[in-house]
Design a protein around this nucleic acid. Structure first.
Lengths: 334, 334
DNA sequence: TCGTTTTAGTGAAACGGTTTACCAAACCGG
DNA sequence: CCGGTTTGGTAAACCGTTTCACTAAAACGA
């Protein structure tokens, strides 16, 4: 179980460990062809592989970045993570993924632990409450970027969907097809900017379309039963913009429970695409976001920072697109 | 951006770094109450947190385990990962997750990099081909456990579903409801034990029930179109046992494309539960596996190894259970 | 009061690498 | 053949911790 070290290789090849180190780092001018060959043989013979930890300690770079997401169950998160990993691996970096379940405490813990682990940078979908902590990171010049959300007054760059436009597209789609009773289903908006932006856009659009807002804001856990009650009372609107995939799940569960016909009795348009929306019966019309693009943009901004460019701040917006399927009813008088 | 080290704390508190180290590790007998207080203050004042890398180098424990899964898109994988993370975090460990996409090369790469990173142990859903590599790990006494699969002749313990029973349950369920035309849908079995076991069980059961085997073995990428062809030719059986969730997706896509009624025209029973199976129309009857239990058992076995107990080998089996929904037709003459 | 133990604390080596500064020998041009 | 340059290589410091061996002073027992 004894691990073989650079010293063992040096000894085997009859050179100093400095030379082996040079060899390992490709500084071949530092040795003759014979020595080089001897070292190569020694490495092979001993099946040596360098201790990444020791390297990191000396180099002060771990070649690792941390990714902290608020809720890994969102399809969006998994796609962002995937794109970040692809990019990072392509650049010789590794990724540690952490899931906060939207808890600020967990988030703070993870940040601390990732700092302790000396990760070289962080991409995070932040919860709302660690403003001071992020502020500190930003001030230290530590490389961090946000995705999907941002924190007011914290000078950390964010990459996110144009939420306003996404709701607008949903609203327009519904409206074009004759809908005048358009509700909005979301988990409690709280301080989560992405939700806030979507909700605000909804309210604003209701205003400009002269439509009475019907918003259903309820915790995911109670969502099914709460929706069920509304349905029982007949207070469910004829069409619903759903704020995200997880809420859509709950809505669909309720619809099944109560045998509600989609789109005949209820039209649905949901934000963020998911695979099953396509083959569900009926197919769910959706406003999709370019998750891979967003993730890639975020991580490449992060890499620029890690290579010394100044911490940018500001928000970069990405445009959503409509995927029309079958969950929206067409009113005839259109 | 200069990071504060134990030396800075020592200096601030006017003690040696040894004493600070003792303080940090709770060896309070090594100092008086006043010194202790001084160090505490210094730590707070400087906002010091220990460099995990340096610690790891010295201690030869990184408090990190690696998890390598063959395909993170399986719901089973995500649930296993989740349970491993929960357990690990509960014991002060961190987890690095890697996805091999079923590529043995990627797997070998990941193993090497995780070793280089000095992770303290590994839980892996292995691809079939790195027998030699795993053999080596096992011989070195390096802590490794398998999940969901195993490799013949490699003395590494595995925790997996009783695949035979799971197919048996599916088969019985179908058979009890009068089905005599029972097919089996799977990605190519190849050398992947879990698939093999399920397929073998299917074949065996066909034998003992006197049913003609109809197996559809096709790559996920071509699955929809291949199924579509079969359907066009009318060669699709009346009921299908589906080997896993990803195959189920493809089947459902095809069913939608062709407007096949489930269960009237096609009965489905799938192995491994997924959330949407519940609210899909119709609900998909499923043989579920206790993923959390499996993951937890695996990681706790790993922890035992890491604490010095010998590498166990052998296979621990977990029992599946039926979740009956609406995707299986009941023939009337039963 | 003196020897012994305990308390409170320190210095230095070690973990496994990288890097800087340095050097001897070989080479080279004139 | 001499002085300078290149080639090939090394020793030692360093990264930030832990820990072992050691000790001065205080406390204690007789």
């Amino acid at each position: 179980m004894k691990n073989v070290t650079i010293n063992d290789v040096a000894h085997e090849a009859n050179v100093s460990k400095s030379t082996v180190s040079h060899y390992l780092n490709g500084h071949f001018t530092k040795m003759g062809p014979d020595t080089r060959e001897r070292i190569a043989r020694a490495v092979r013979k001993l099946d040596y592989s360098p201790n990444h930890i020791a390297k990191s300690l000396k180099n002060k770079r771990t070649m690792t970045i941390g990714v902290i997401v608020a809720n890994i169950l969102h399809n969006f998160s998994t796609r962002v993570i995937r794109s970040i990993e692809d990019f990072a691996h392509g650049h010789g970096y590794h990724v540690i993924v952490c899931n906060t379940d939207n808890s600020s405490d967990k988030e703070a813990d993870y940040i601390r632990m990732l700092m302790a682990k000396q990760v070289d940078g962080l991409v995070v979908i932040p919860t709302a409450k660690n403003e001071a902590l992020f502020m500190e990171l930003a001030e230290k010049g530590y490389p961090v970027v946000f995705v999907d959300r941002y924190i007011e007054n914290v000078p950390i760059q964010s990459h996110m969907l144009d939420n306003r436009v996404s709701v607008m597209m949903a609203f327009d789609h519904l409206s074009e097809r004759g809908h005048r009773e358009i509700g909005f289903l979301t988990e409690p908006v709280e301080a989560i900017v992405a939700r806030q932006e979507r909700y605000d856009a909804y309210l604003e659009l209701c205003g400009s379309y002269g439509i009475r807002p019907i918003s259903i804001q309820v915790e995911k856990e109670g969502m099914v039963s709460s929706l069920d009650q509304s349905a029982a009372q007949g207070s469910l609107p004829e069409s619903l913009i759903v704020a995200n995939d997880l809420a859509l799940f709950e809505l669909l569960k309720m619809a099944k429970q109560r045998n509600i016909l989609i789109p005949e009795e209820l039209s649905i348009i949901s934000i963020d695409d998911i695979e099953f929306a396509d083959f569900f019966n009926p197919g769910i019309t959706v406003i999709a976001q370019p998750a891979v693009e967003i993730g890639t943009a975020a991580v490449s901004a992060l890499f620029e920072m890690m290579n010394g460019s100044k911490n940018a701040s500001g928000i970069e917006r990405f445009q959503p697109y409509l995927i029309e399927r079958e969950s929206v009813k067409q009113y005839e008088d259109q």
